[in-house]
Design a protein around this nucleic acid. Structure first.
Lengths: 260, 260
DNA sequence: AAACGCTGTTCTCGGGAGGAGAACAAGACG
DNA sequence: CGTCTTGTTCTCCTCCCGAGAACAGCGTTT
């Protein structure tokens, strides 16, 4: 736990961390695995798991005695309508552009703490470059994040600057003024790149997606090696990504209401 | 809270309770509302909400400063595959039978502590009788629950008997022996009723749904006043409900594998 | 305008709850 | 049978969480 905020309930946070660990793991997890991932004792994790099982958020496989997501978790997901549309609306266009570029495509939505990865379509090169679903990319060190700073609510930028800009690589933007001017540029161009700002050798190209209320719904991005995604990609790629985003926005209803 | 188990993490449980409250409420909730629903202080609820917001499970509406489900909640729901199929597979047949009988139809899935209500299709009489999504019906005092005891894993029955059979109405089965024999009867007939066992004046008629592994996936039920659902409904209704359940089971893949 | 009645948010403080760590139980291997 | 693992239980001590009150903003009321 890095930036230990002190106005949250500690054990509640670990319970949610356990829930996330189970949700975003591809296979069922055991007590020990979760314990060492979260750096907590087995006993503590066990009791948190009991709480989650008790409420039906996770279930224990009677055969292997490992833990997986429970019924209530999926039920709750169905009751949060807006983002489902985003994932569904983006599915097709994302596959399309992956097929045309062979580059991994990533869909994210804004959160208070970063760009949450909702869905990915892995490129079909030999070397696969992906982003873990459910992970959060920092606002200042990812193309998706900077898009959200540019087109999302101003509070995001304030919060980001207030929390500081920790460097992930030597190329990460750490100067507040530079971040602000870069975000202004992104707002003009409608597209962001983040060459080697999150991970050396990797670049990302992101554009915003808007909903029917003309508000930022998320961002779609291409993510790949700097071999295929140089710091200044050619205009054809820009156009392609912009067109994908506007297809998704239109599916969400963007432009169907009289905007101001 | 009623049956305070002592092997769970208390504050984790309240966090999950807050999450559920928000998820199963039809509109966004405020701190005060949640606090009085859960009988906790505003300050405590506020901090739990901070934890949930911090992890992206809930989000605060910037306009009204009320809380609703966040992005991560819906994302997690998408990652729990099995039950989604159940809800989707049952949707059509449930509507059909509601249209033919005008009686409320309810879909539930087994949990360690009861029959979780996944979806409902409200009947179109003047007096509406529904069941709240996300609520859990006790195993011993609902038709759905008894179906699960009959066709689900034996551990359910053990646990239910161990925890005791609290009466909800004068008609609730409270004698363990009677529950066992009734469940055996249900296992033979493939259908359960629970006249006035959960609520006076209300009866329920439930049948099991099975998945491709021939294991219990859930139960569908008709739920209505004893005027339309007498203690011994006519055979036509039984046949109709059985047929609905087998349609759902077939959609789930039941019967496509060589059973034993 | 001033007083009110609501919110959501912050503060302090004391008691008990939750985490560490070790011990136990129970399979899975060889 | 011994030796690894697991998951589960136990005890103890610290510090975290909850109650309750105070604070800060809003609308509405008189």
């Amino acid at each position: 736990m890095d930036a230990q905020r002190k106005d949250i309930v500690r054990s509640a946070d670990t319970t949610l961390a356990v829930l996330e660990a189970i949700a975003f793991a591809e296979e069922a997890l055991g007590v020990t695995q979760i314990a060492q991932r979260l750096s907590l004792s087995k006993g503590a994790i066990f009791r948190h798991l009991q709480s989650l099982v008790d409420r039906g958020f996770v279930a224990q496989d009677p055969q292997t005695s490992r833990y997986r997501l429970g019924v209530k978790a999926s039920l709750i997901g169905r009751l949060a309508p807006p983002e489902n549309d985003l994932i569904a609306a983006a599915e097709g266009p994302m596959r399309d552009i992956r097929d045309r570029t062979a580059i991994t495509t990533v869909l994210s939505a804004p959160t208070t703490s970063g760009a949450l990865v909702l869905n990915t379509v892995i490129g079909y090169r030999t070397i696969e470059i992906g982003v873990r679903k459910g992970s959060e990319l920092p606002f200042h060190a990812s193309a998706q994040g900077k898009v959200m700073l540019a087109f999302g609510p101003p509070a995001l930028m304030e919060r980001t600057l207030r929390l500081g800009l920790p460097p992930l690589t030597p190329h990460t933007i750490t100067d507040p003024d530079r971040l602000v001017s870069e975000v202004n540029l992104i707002r003009e161009n409608g597209v962001a790149t983040a060459p080697e700002e999150a991970l050396l050798g990797i670049n990302t190209l992101a554009v915003p997606v808007f909903d029917r209320d003309s508000r930022l719904a998320g961002a779609v991005a291409l993510c790949g090696s700097i071999q295929y995604l140089p710091a200044n990609p050619d205009d054809g790629l820009f156009a392609m990504v912009r067109e994908m985003a506007s297809r998704i926005s239109r599916t969400l209803g963007y432009g169907t209401r009289a905007g101001n």
